[in-house]
Simulated assay, not measured.
Amino acid sequence: MAIHLKRVHHIAIICTNYEKSKHFYVNILGLRPIREIYREERRSYKLDLAVGDEYQIELFSFPSPPSRPSFPEAAGLRHLAFEVDSIDDTVSEIQAAGIEVEDVRIDPTTNKKFTFFTDPDQLPIEIYEGA
């Protein structure tokens, strides 16, 4: 018997500064807010963000979450990747927002352009040029 997974439903991200991360994901990356709630009992915000028409990111805030080990890379989820139409245009927009972006590289298997930058909590984010 095989499990039948239909698609990715959402990706959850815990941030240390809710307003800063909300600004980053909404105003810089351009994700569309779906709903925002404050859960008093957990002292936590939850913001659902649309990625295109099919995917969602849940942005959470919690009091004093531990830091994410990124360097050196730790076991577990490595990074979040988004497909874009133009790496060059996207890099220019990200840099215009004051965010440092790594040099653009070419994937040796697909010959597609890609690069990385980080969110306000140093979560690695990849942008990958589509077809």
Rank of each mutant, 00 (worst) to 15 (best):
G130H: 14
R32H: 15
I37M: 12
E54N: 11
L31G: 00
R43P: 00
P33K: 04
Q95D: 06
T118I: 02
R105H: 14
S86C: 12
F117H: 03
P33M: 01
A81C: 15
P72C: 02
K6S: 15
L31W: 04
S21I: 03
E19N: 10
P66Q: 01
H9C: 15
K46S: 09
V84R: 02
A131H: 15
E41G: 12
F24M: 00
P120G: 06
R78P: 04
K22F: 03
A131R: 13
N27W: 09
T115G: 03
D48Q: 11
E102T: 14
F116W: 04
D103N: 14
T16P: 06
A74T: 01
D103L: 15
A81P: 11
T115L: 04
H9W: 15
L5H: 14
P65T: 02
N17G: 01
H79C: 03
I106H: 05
F116V: 01
R35E: 08
P66E: 07
L59M: 10
N17K: 09
D119F: 06
I37F: 09
V104E: 00
F62Q: 15
S70C: 10
S61F: 11
K22G: 03
S86Y: 10
L49M: 06
Y55D: 08
Y38H: 12
S21V: 04
A97P: 07
K20G: 01
I13M: 01
E36S: 10
V104Q: 01
G76F: 00
V91G: 00
K22Q: 04
K22A: 06
S44G: 07
I125G: 01
K112E: 05
R105S: 13
F82K: 02
A131D: 11
S61G: 03
L123C: 05
P66Y: 00
N17A: 06
I94W: 12
E73P: 14
E83A: 13
E58K: 08
E54P: 06
I34C: 07
D107M: 03
D107V: 04
R7P: 09
A2P: 08
D89V: 10
H10A: 03
G130Q: 06
D53E: 14
F116M: 00
A75E: 13
V91W: 02
K46I: 13
E126C: 05
G98S: 04
G76M: 00
R78I: 10
H79D: 05
L31Q: 02
S67N: 11
F117Q: 00
L5Q: 13
D85A: 12
F114C: 02
S86D: 12
S44R: 04
T109I: 12
S44V: 03
K113N: 10
R35W: 11
S67E: 11
T16M: 09
Y55Q: 08
V8K: 12
S61V: 00
A2C: 09
S61H: 12
D53G: 11
S70P: 02
I87V: 14
D48V: 15
E73A: 10
A74N: 12
D48H: 14
H4Q: 09
P124I: 00
F114N: 00
L123I: 03
S44N: 03
S21C: 08
T115V: 08
E100Y: 08
